[in-house]
């Protein structure tokens, strides 16, 4: 048992990941505290999404992926000690780059996670859906049209719906892969505001290409380059006085 026990929500230790023979992540060790927002930044193809997907084992779905090292949530190694990956994924919500609501009603989208958990009670479903939509700041806009198709919503609303869908099952971690990159500035601002609110209930990791966004929403920022974690520190520090030249070059736009 090490001294960090119980302090961190998410951790990796010496994590390597290979797509067949190509190494995408190199010896990554990181510690993420609970109820914080952590931003992953770095040039395209540096492995941000790949790393993010390690935390809910979404990479398992891709053929030819091998992983060594440890990924821990609440100090449990999710690749070695996790019996049921489906149960585990329920504790870690994920929001994707492009809004991907199911072609179902707004209500059914949010209720999906509860239904696959076997929840049948109408009152429980209704209460949870309402709570999740409120938490995702979407309730006021959709409360009269819960039975309408989710596909009729705007892109920004769809993305907030996806957030509601993810938090409806009460995960403790929320992974977001460029959640606002397909949205207009107003929707983006709403999502950012939302992230700020959600931090009180969740540990949030967000991948972004938008430096201002990282600076605005995150407590800590991790800079990745070519599959390596170059620097991980307080967001203020990363953006004002980074320790590494590579980080400095990236955030000032000199490459990437």
């Amino acid at each position: 048992m090490d001294s960090n026990y119980g302090t961190y929500k998410l951790r990796t230790r010496h994590l390597n990941l290979f797509y067949s023979t190509k190494q995408a992540l190199k010896d990554i060790t990181i510690n993420i505290s609970p109820n914080t927002v952590t931003a992953f930044i770095g040039p395209s193809g540096c492995g941000k999404s790949t790393f993010l997907r390690c935390f809910n084992r979404m990479n398992d779905l891709i053929e030819g992926v091998t992983i060594d090292g440890e990924v821990l949530i609440d100090d449990v190694d999710i690749y070695k000690n996790m019996v049921d990956v489906h149960e585990y994924r329920k504790k870690v919500g994920m929001v994707f780059q492009k809004p991907n609501p199911f072609p179902k009603s707004i209500f059914e989208n949010v209720a999906f996670g509860l239904r696959i958990n076997g929840e049948r009670s109408k009152t429980v479903l209704e209460e949870s859906v309402e709570a999740a939509l409120k938490q995702a700041a979407l309730w006021e806009e959709v409360k009269d049209s819960l039975n309408k198709s989710a596909l009729a919503l705007s892109g920004g609303q769809q993305q907030r719906l996806c957030i509601a869908r993810a938090i409806a099952v009460k995960p403790s971690v929320l992974l977001m892969d460029e959640p606002a990159s397909a949205l207009d500035p107003i929707s983006t601002a709403k999502i950012e505001e939302l992230i700020y609110q959600l931090k009180h209930s969740f540990t949030i990791v967000i991948v972004t290409h938008n430096m201002q966004q990282a600076a605005r929403v995150s407590d800590k920022t991790a800079f990745f380059f070519m599959g390596e974690l170059i620097e991980f520190d307080k967001t203020d520090k990363i953006f004002t006085n980074p320790s590494e030249d590579a980080t400095q070059n990236y955030i000032t736009g000199r490459f990437g």
Partner: peptide
């Protein structure tokens, strides 16, 4: 689209679900 499958898996659905 695969994005729908990913969304379901991300919520903890099994393959059959």
């Amino acid at each position: 689209p695969d994005s729908l499958r990913e969304a379901a898996f991300g919520l903890g659905a099994t393959k059959w679900q």
